[in-house]
């Protein structure tokens, strides 16, 4: 993301994702019908599902970038992996918080070990650990190597955790979450799809901003080295 062409593309992406987000928001409140059982609270669902999906997608990108880094050793893969985790953590935090807000009117409690909510919380913990790991390793090359490995292994455990949690919930049936079924109208599906599209665009916009930040910070490090080298003669 360097150069003035990219500068334009960057702005188009940022503005475009903002516009599509507004469209999605309008659809959530004006286009989608009021759900019969849950009422207006159900309108949380669209952005909640979209952020969960995009968060998970962000971690998948980190997994791929981790593989890319280990195979090639190129800095850009590490920049991509790190940026994707930061954006993913932002989105998955939204998922967990709004899921807990949703749980209150739906099931009468702020937290339930509902599998989808639980796996989001597990992912949040995993990728916060990823960021802590990065903060705790000396040396850029070693940091990139370790976090690539962690990003790969972590992502592989997510589906395993998902199945384990789901079976665990079936063994301890949760009466609270029994009434989960809602009647899905076509307009709801349209709204959900546009929301997911909007969040994906927002992901791309935030990702490219975060990557740009990392490249600028690289430039700063190079400049510091240059000055240091010269002052030493």
């Amino acid at each position: 993301m360097r150069g003035s062409d990219n500068y334009l593309a960057q702005h188009l992406l940022t503005v475009g994702s903002g516009l599509v987000m507004l469209v999605a928001l309008g659809m959530v409140f004006l286009y989608a019908p009021r759900e019969a059982v849950m009422g207006d609270v159900q309108r949380i669902f669209y952005f909640h599902v979209a952020s969960a999906w995009v968060g998970f997608f962000g971690f998948f990108v980190t997994f791929l970038a981790g593989v890319g880094y280990l195979l090639s050793g190129q800095r850009r893969w590490d920049v991509l992996a790190l940026s994707s985790v930061e954006v993913g953590v932002t989105f998955i935090t939204m998922t967990v918080v709004t899921g807990s807000l949703w749980a209150k009117p739906a099931w009468g409690t702020y937290w339930t070990w509902e599998p989808r909510l639980t796996i989001s919380a597990v992912q949040l913990l995993i990728y916060v650990a990823y960021l802590m790991l990065r903060g705790s390793v000396e040396g850029r090359e070693q940091r990139a190597r370790f976090s690539s490995v962690y990003g790969i292994v972590a992502f592989v455990t997510v589906p395993l955790s998902w199945f384990a949690i789901r079976w665990w919930r079936t063994i301890h049936p949760d009466i609270l979450t029994g009434g989960d079924q809602m009647a899905i109208a076509p307009r709801m599906i349209h709204t959900l799809l546009v929301s997911i599209g909007a969040f994906t665009l927002l992901y791309a916009a935030l990702l490219s901003l975060r990557m740009k930040l990392e490249w600028t910070s690289d430039e700063l490090i190079r400049m510091r080295l240059k000055l240091e080298r010269r002052s030493r003669g």
Partner: peptide, 9 residues
Amino acid sequence: VLLFPLALP
């Protein structure tokens, strides 16, 4: 911190 969330299953 690294291990526990991965060892959940």
